[in-house]
Computed example of a mutant assay.
Amino acid sequence: MAIVNRVRECRFFADEMTQQALAEAVGVTRQTIMAIEKNKYNPSLEVAFKIAHLFNKPLEEVFTYEAED
């Protein structure tokens, strides 16, 4: 099982928000956002909710848990 996300897509549709702007808005570093987008790091529940809330989307629309093949 793996957590996958649509953070990059959400940033694109939010007037191409930068990783830095998103990081500042949710209280993490740009490197953390970059790692989340590359699926190298899973955010804490708090950060995941903050990201979803910022984009005005339900959590499960931004982050999903999928079975690996």
Rank of each mutant, 00 (worst) to 15 (best):
R11A: 09
D69V: 10
I3D: 00
V4L: 13
P43K: 02
I36Q: 06
I51H: 00
F13Q: 14
P43T: 07
A48W: 07
L59T: 05
N42H: 01
E68G: 06
Q31L: 01
N42D: 11
R11C: 13
V4H: 07
A48L: 06
K50T: 03
E61M: 04
E37S: 01
F13M: 12
Q19L: 09
N5Q: 08
T64K: 14
V26K: 10
T32N: 11
I36A: 05
T32Q: 13
T18F: 07
D15A: 14
I51C: 00
V62I: 15
K38P: 03
I36S: 03
V26D: 10
P43W: 00
V47E: 01
M17Y: 11
C10Y: 11
E66V: 15
E24D: 15
K40R: 15
K38R: 14
M34I: 08
C10A: 15
G27I: 07
N39T: 06
E60V: 11
A48M: 05
Y65R: 13
E16Q: 14
T64I: 14
E16M: 12
T64P: 00
Y65I: 14
E16P: 00
A48Y: 02
P58T: 07
T32H: 13
E16A: 15
M1K: 09
K40M: 05
N42L: 02
L22F: 08
A35Q: 12
I3N: 01
N5F: 04
V28F: 03
R6M: 12
N39S: 09
M17G: 09
N5A: 04
G27R: 10
T18W: 06
D69C: 09
R11D: 10
V47Y: 00
N5I: 11
A23D: 07
A35H: 09
V26H: 07
A21W: 00
A23F: 08
T18V: 02
I33R: 02
A23M: 06
Q19N: 05
E24K: 13
D15S: 13
T18Q: 06
P58V: 02
Q19C: 03
E24L: 13
A52G: 01
L59E: 06
V4D: 12
M34W: 10
F55I: 04
V7T: 06
T18I: 07
I3L: 15
F55P: 04
Q19I: 05
V62Y: 08
R30G: 09
A14W: 08
I51K: 02
A25T: 06
